[in-house]
Design a protein around this nucleic acid. Structure first.
Length: 287
DNA sequence: GCTATAGGAGATAACAAAGG
DNA sequence: CCTTTGTTATCTCCTATAGC
C-alpha cells in the first residue's frame, strides 16, 4: 500500500542510477534545453522543473504565476503544467508525467481557494536537475535554500558547508551524474576507509531498491556526500589536491553537533557490520 | 508520408473570497 | 444578497510535429 500521499514511488540511489535517471533522460532530455538539442517537450518539462527547483513547493497555478501575470494567460499555462505533471491519456494510451516518473512529488495542499495539490521536486528530481539543467552555482544555492528541509543534512547546512569547503559543495553534481560508490578504485585512493564506508552505505539501503522513504533517501544521499568529500575530485591516486585533508574534514563534522551525532552513528553502524563479519571470518580459520 | 505523441483551446464544474 | 474574479480540476476534440 502506498504509504505516501506523495503520489509517487521511488527507490534508493541505486534505483536512481539504474532506472530513474536513464528513464528521465530518455523522456525529458539528457542535456539542458539551452543547448538546443532536445525536443520542445524536453524544454517544457525542464523549464517547469527549474521553476519548481528555484521556487520550492507550488500549485500548478503558482507555477504559471511565477512568469505570467494576467489570469487568462495563467489559466492556459497551468493546464499545460498539470498535463506535464500528471501525464496524459490519449487513444487509450497513457503517457507518463513527472509524478509517475518520480521526479516530482505532491507536498500538501493549498487552501487559498478550493483545496489544491501542491508540488515540488523529489530528491530524484533534484538530482536530475543538478545533472541535466546546467545550473549556475547561484541557482544551486537557491535550490538548497528552498529544499533545506527535504535534504536537511546537506541543504540545511549549505551555508555552513560553503563557508568551510567553498566550491566543494557542488560535488553533489557527481552523485546526480550517477557516479556512485560501486567503485573499487576508491579503496586505493585514501588511507581513510572511504571504500568501506561507501560499501556499507550500499548495504544499509540495499532493500530499498523498489521503494524508500524520503527521509531514508535523504540520509543515503547525505552520507554519500560527506563520505565522498574524502575522495579526490580527479580520480587519480597521484593527484592529492582537491580532496579534503582528513583534519579539515573532521573539523567540519565535529564542529556541528547535529552532523557529528548523525554521521558517527552511521560510522558506528558500519564498524559493527564489519566487526560481525570479521569475527565470523576468524571463526572459519579454526574449523 | 504515417503514426504516435505533444500542443492548443474550448466546455464544464466546483468553490472561495472580494466587491457591489 | 448576488455577481465577479481567481483557482483548481477534468474531459474532449482538433492540429502540429517529431521520429520512424
Amino acid at each position: 500500500m502506498p504509504s505516501n500521499e506523495q503520489g509517487t514511488i521511488y527507490g534508493n540511489l541505486h534505483a536512481y542510477k539504474m532506472y530513474t535517471r536513464p528513464t528521465a533522460q530518455r523522456l525529458f532530455g539528457a542535456y539542458s534545453f539551452r543547448k538546443k538539442q532536445g525536443t520542445k517537450h524536453h524544454e517544457n518539462v525542464q523549464r517547469m522543473l527549474e521553476i519548481l527547483g528555484l521556487n520550492g513547493t507550488l500549485t500548478t497555478w503558482g507555477i504559471a504565476k511565477t512568469h505570467l501575470d494576467d489570469s487568462s494567460g495563467i489559466r492556459t499555462k497551468e493546464k499545460e503544467y498539470r498535463r506535464l505533471l500528471l501525464g496524459r491519456m490519449a487513444r487509450g494510451k497513457h503517457t507518463i508525467g513527472l509524478l509517475e516518473s518520480g521526479l516530482v512529488v505532491k507536498d500538501g495542499k493549498s487552501h487559498v481557494k478550493a483545496p489544491a495539490d501542491q508540488y515540488r521536486l523529489s530528491l530524484h528530481g533534484i538530482l536530475y536537475c543538478l545533472d541535466v539543467l546546467d545550473l549556475t552555482d547561484k541557482q544551486i544555492d537557491k535550490i538548497a535554500e528552498k529544499y533545506s528541509d527535504v535534504l536537511p543534512m546537506v541543504f540545511g547546512k549549505w551555508e555552513y558547508l560553503k563557508s568551510n569547503i567553498g566550491n566543494e559543495v557542488y560535488r553533489l553534481k557527481n552523485l546526480a551524474a550517477g557516479l556512485f560508490m560501486d567503485n573499487i578504485q576508491i579503496a586505493k585512493i585514501s588511507n581513510f576507509p572511504v571504500y568501506e564506508l561507501m560499501t556499507y552505505l550500499n548495504v544499509k539501503y540495499q532493500n530499498n531498491f523498489e521503494q524508500i522513504d524520503e527521509e531514508d533517501l535523504a540520509n543515503q544521499i547525505s552520507f554519500w556526500f560527506y563520505t565522498n568529500l574524502l575522495v579526490p575530485a580527479r580520480f587519480r591516486a597521484s593527484s592529492k589536491h582537491s580532496s579534503l585533508e582528513i583534519k579539515q574534514w573532521k573539523k567540519i563534522i565535529q564542529e556541528d553537533k547535529n552532523i557529528a551525532k548523525w554521521y558517527y552513528e552511521f560510522v558506528n553502524e558500519a564498524i559493527k557490520f564489519y566487526n560481525t563479519r570479521f569475527s565470523r571470518l576468524k571463526k572459519l580459520e579454526k574449523v
